[in-house]
Simulated assay, not measured.
Amino acid sequence: MSVELQKRLEALEAELAKATAKERADLLAHLEEAVLGLEAKGETAPAWAKAHLATWDDEEGVEEQFDNMPL
């Protein structure tokens, strides 16, 4: 992994730790891009990054269930 990408992932991890809900969604989108970029190069993403993205996917799935719920 490049030093630049490693520093960016570390910065994202620190930002996620103190982010509000709105900021968290934006940061997770950036994290997803970084992880996909790593995996496209055949590299492995850090476990903490995958854990954050798995949680994010679960949250979005729950939210989608309520999007079409009749009132």
Rank of each mutant, 00 (worst) to 15 (best):
T20S: 10
A29D: 13
F66C: 05
A54S: 07
A49M: 01
L71I: 09
S2P: 15
E33L: 13
E23K: 06
V62D: 08
V3F: 13
E59F: 08
E10T: 03
K22Q: 15
E43W: 09
L16E: 00
T44L: 12
K22M: 12
S2D: 13
A11R: 13
A47I: 10
A34Q: 07
H30E: 14
E4F: 12
K7T: 06
E59S: 11
K7F: 12
V35W: 01
W56N: 07
K22W: 10
A40P: 08
H30W: 11
E4Q: 14
P70C: 02
W56S: 10
A54F: 00
R24L: 00
A17D: 03
L36S: 09
A54I: 00
L5M: 11
L28V: 03
A51S: 09
K7A: 14
L28G: 03
E10N: 04
K50H: 08
L53M: 01
P46R: 02
A11C: 07
E59R: 14
A14Q: 05
A25E: 08
E13K: 14
A47D: 11
A11N: 10
A19W: 02
E4P: 05
L28R: 15
L5V: 08
L38C: 01
A54N: 05
L27W: 04
L28Y: 02
E13T: 04
L16A: 03
D58H: 13
L9M: 03
E32Y: 04
E4C: 05
D26Q: 09
R24I: 00
E63A: 15
A45H: 02
A54L: 06
L28M: 07
E32H: 10
E13S: 06
T44C: 06
A47F: 12
G61Q: 11
E39L: 01
L12M: 02
W48D: 04
W48K: 01
L9N: 08
A34V: 03
A40F: 07
A25V: 14
H52P: 04
R24N: 06
T55A: 15
A51G: 04
A34I: 05
A25F: 07
M1G: 15
T44R: 14
M69K: 12
